[in-house]
């Protein structure tokens, strides 16, 4: 193992964390990512037991998850495996597919509402998606403050935003500002 010490997308040793009212923002530095695309004539694989989801959807199964990123393309997530060569693992279980390492291409920010409310109010300040059709299991790529992001509805009170790693600071600022303003409104 290397003796170099990594830093998070936000540029620190420990992942970013902040809390505003009922909302927690947490940088998920341990999330491994790899993209998977079908090649001509390959059958859809079921990597790690995942049934690859339809456009606009996200599925999770035993610490691994997948979201559809485009026709015949998915992003595969693996919790806590950022330090492993996850794309190599994926390649093993998705023969005949194109796999590209993406772990360090992104910053993942998990948004959890402890009180169970406020998540949709927050998202409505950030992204122009119809939240009525974006219940748990929804996932889409869209613009967020001029940044291209994946937004994933992991559960009723849990969403995640994946943005380009280089603009992690700007993305964090955008989420933090929106969350702070919701807190002001409640106050």
């Amino acid at each position: 193992m290397t003796d170099l010490r990594p830093i998070t997308a936000l540029g620190t040793v420990t992942p970013g964390y902040a809390s505003f009212g009922a909302l927690d923002l947490r940088e998920n530095a341990g999330l491994a990512l790899a993209s998977l695309a079908l090649r001509r004539g390959t059958l859809e694989p079921t990597p790690f037991g995942l049934t690859l989801p339809e456009p606009g959807r996200w599925v999770a199964w035993q610490g691994v998850a997948a979201l559809c990123t485009g026709p015949d393309q998915w992003m595969i997530e693996a919790e806590g495996r950022a330090e492993l060569d996850f794309s190599a693992e994926l390649k093993q279980v998705a023969p005949g597919c194109s796999v590209t390492e993406q772990t360090d291409g992104w910053v993942a920010i998990e948004i959890v509402s402890r009180a169970g409310t406020g998540l949709e109010a927050l998202l409505s300040k950030l992204v122009n998606i119809d939240l009525a059709n974006f219940g748990p299991g929804g996932a889409t790529r869209t613009g967020l403050e001029h940044m291209s992001c994946f937004v994933i509805r992991r559960g009723d009170v849990h969403a995640a935003v994946l943005g380009a790693r280089s603009s992690a600071g700007s993305l964090w600022h955008a989420l933090e500002t929106a969350a702070k303003r919701l807190e002001e409104k409640v106050a």
């Binding site: 456009p55 559809c68 990123t69 485009g70 026709p71 393309q73 889409t140 790529r141 869209t142 613009g143 291209s148």
Partner: peptide, 15 residues
């Protein structure tokens, strides 16, 4: 009138 044109879903699924 009716015009067929190309749009790229750049901030979406890249279709």
């Amino acid at each position: 009138g009716a015009h067929r044109e190309l749009w790229f879903h750049e901030q979406g699924d890249r279709s």
